[in-house]
Design a protein around this nucleic acid. Sequence first.
DNA 1: ACATACTTTCAAAAAGTTTTGAAAATTCAA
DNA 2: TTGAATTTTCAAAACTTTTTGAAAGTATGT
Lengths: 168, 168
Amino acid sequence: MKLTEAKQQFISSWGSFGTHWGINRTMAQIHALLLVSADPLTQDDIMEELNISRGNTNMNIRELINWGLVERVILPGERKEYFTAEKDIWKVVKLIVKERKKRELEPMLQLLDKLEGVEGDKKDKNVKTFIDTISGIKKLGKQADKTLDMMIKAEESWFVGNLIKFFK
Amino acid sequence: MKLTEAKQQFISSWGSFGTHWGINRTMAQIHALLLVSADPLTQDDIMEELNISRGNTNMNIRELINWGLVERVILPGERKEYFTAEKDIWKVVKLIVKERKKRELEPMLQLLDKLEGVEGDKKDKNVKTFIDTISGIKKLGKQADKTLDMMIKAEESWFVGNLIKFFK
DNA sequence: ACATACTTTCAAAAAGTTTTGAAAATTCAA
DNA sequence: TTGAATTTTCAAAACTTTTTGAAAGTATGT
C-alpha cells in the first residue's frame, strides 16, 4: 500500500473511531492528519487535505488546542500559523483521559454524592435498591477516578512493562 | 430530595453520560431506570416512566439485551415479558468494556497491522513519521487489549482493593 | 381455529449535530 | 495609518441519528 492511501485510511478510521468516543469526526481527522505529518501544517493545508471548510477547520483546530493535543507553531519569517500534534501516544492518551475525566467522571461523581442522600425509609425496597445502586456506582467511580489520576501521572513504561505482572 | 426526583435526575444524567460513550440517550435511560427499580418492569411501564414510544422502547431494550445488560424475565402466570437489569456494577462495567473492545479496539488493531506495512523508503521523513506513529499506537493498543482482557476476567475486589498498591 | 394480548418492524418525521461560507475582526508590515 | 493577509464567528444549510406510531407479525389460552 502507498503512503497516500495508507494515510487516507488511517485518517478516515481515526475519524469514525473518534465518533464513538465523544470526539467529532472532523476533530479526530485533523488530529490523525497532524499525527502522521512530519512537518507542521497550516489551516489551508488541512482544509485542502481533508476537503473541509475554513470555519470547520478553524473551530476544530481550536478544540484540539484546548484539549492540549495540538500546538500552534510560528515559523520565523512566516505570517501564517502552523499546527503540529503531540506525537507521543502515551502523552496523547493521558491528555484525553484527563480531559474526559474532568468533563464526565467528576460531574457524575458529584451528582451521585447528592443522590445518595435521598430521603425515605430504607426498608422500602425501592428506596433501598436506589441507594444501593447509587452507592455501588459511586464506589467504583471513585476508585476509577483515583486510578486514572495515577495513570495520568505515570510513565508509559509502567503501563507497557509492568501492569501485566499485576494481573497474574 | 424525594425518591421520584432523585430517580429522574439519575435517569437523565445517565442518559447524557451515555451519549458521550457511544450509547444512545434512550438506551442509557432505560438502563438507568431498570438499575434503580427493585422489581422487573414491562415495556409499558418503561414507556410510561420515560415517555417514549413503543417502537423506541422495544428497540433499545433489545439492544440492552444484546449487550448483556438487561434480561427478559417471565413471571409465572403472566402473559407479558418483564425486564430487569444486572445490578452488580462491576459486572456491568465488564460487559460494557467487553462489548466496546470487540466493536472498536479490535478492528482498529487489525487496521493498524495492515497500515504498518506501508511501502516506501524509511529515509523519507513522511514515511518514517507515518510508520512511527502507527507503531506507537499499535504498541499501546495491544497492551490495552491485553489489560482489558484481564480486567474482564478479574474480580471486583482486585480493582477496588489492590490496583492502588501497584501504582505506588 | 379463533380472538386477544403482546411484540416487532420500518418508513417517515423530528430532533440533534456538524458543516459551510461569507462577513467581521484581527494582525502585521510598510 | 492603511490595506492586504490571516483568523474567527455564527446563522443557515446539510447531514446524521433518533424517535414515532401504525401496521404486520407472533404467541397463547380456550
